[in-house]
């Protein structure tokens, strides 16, 4: 058994170099998230609030192209609610019989529409900077959801002696500290129907939770399946150990 543990230790010793480069430059504090842990799940109410934040603030510039209206079912939306939600958006479809593109109300199967017609239009409207798609944002940055949260909360006055280029904004955690996006999240920029606190920290947290749901929609299935698989594997390993010991009982080794 000891040797097996040693083997496991060796496995992690070999694996660490890749993880080591995470800790350079800015230190990003860890936050508490409902989706962390052995059986972490998304806080439905929080993620729904986060969607409201996305809709009212982020979606002016940022697309969420890998999320479709139908996906909101896992957030606790009914089929009717999803239809109503989708119908608030217009998408381009076509060509029709006359060969023209036309606008129609979005359907459940449609992805969330882009705020801009294309990347060039997005750049033109944002001083040359392309607002990235947010579907995978919490997985596409070192630090994950913690990074996204602290980025939203990281707008501070630049320290003395630090020159911020025109059109850019100082941000504590953004690599290089100069970010194109202006500060978006402050106290009471949204009002929640459920009366949840809407100070900047809570809003940032809610929208980050929503973005993590958007990036990793199968997280809950992953955790619950994982636990069952792990229990099974542990039982199997235990039985295999007993069987091995039994079979080897009379072999001196």
């Amino acid at each position: 058994m000891k040797k097996v543990l040693l083997a496991a230790a060796a496995v992690f010793a070999l694996a660490t170099p890749a993880a080591l480069n995470a800790a350079e430059e800015v230190h990003i504090p860890k936050e508490e998230w409902s989706f962390n842990g052995l059986l972490g799940t998304f806080d439905r109410a929080q993620v729904q609030r986060g969607f409201q934040v996305y809709k009212e603030i982020c979606s002016a510039c940022h697309s969420l192209k890998y999320v479709s209206f139908r996906n909101f079912e896992t957030l606790g939306y009914s089929e009717g609610q999803i239809k109503t939600l989708a119908a608030q958006y217009e998408v381009e479809d076509g060509p029709d019989d006359a060969g023209d593109m036309f606008k129609r109300k979005a359907k459940a199967s449609d992805p969330l529409p882009h705020p801009f017609a294309n990347d060039a239009a997005a750049r033109a409207a944002n001083g040359g900077a392309l607002p990235p798609d947010l579907s995978l944002m919490t997985k596409a940055r070192e630090g994950g959801p913690d990074y996204v949260y602290h980025l939203l909360m990281g707008y501070k006055d630049a320290p003395a002696g630090f020159t911020v280029m025109p059109g850019l904004n100082y941000n504590e955690v953004f690599p290089g500290h100069q970010i194109g996006m202006a500060k978006q999240i402050s106290d009471a920029v949204v009002t929640y129907a459920d009366g949840a606190p809407n100070d900047a920290a809570h809003i940032a947290k809610d929208v980050t939770a929503f973005l993590h749901w958007a990036a990793e929609p199968k997280l809950e299935a992953r955790h619950s399946t994982g636990l069952r698989v792990l229990i099974y594997a542990l039982l199997f390993a235990g039985l295999a150990y007993l069987l091995k010991r039994r079979i080897w009982k009379d072999i001196p080794h």
């Binding site: 496991a8 993880a19 994982g226 698989v229 542990l234 069987l243 091995k244």
Partner: peptide, 26 residues
């Protein structure tokens, strides 16, 4: 075979822990 199967059991516990809880760590 018995020894390898036991080793496999221990190995999959580690492997699945990463797959299900830390799938992007590497």
């Amino acid at each position: 075979v018995a020894k390898d199967v036991f080793g496999l059991g221990v190995f999959v516990v580690i492997y699945f822990t990463v797959v299900f809880w830390f799938p992007n760590i590497l």
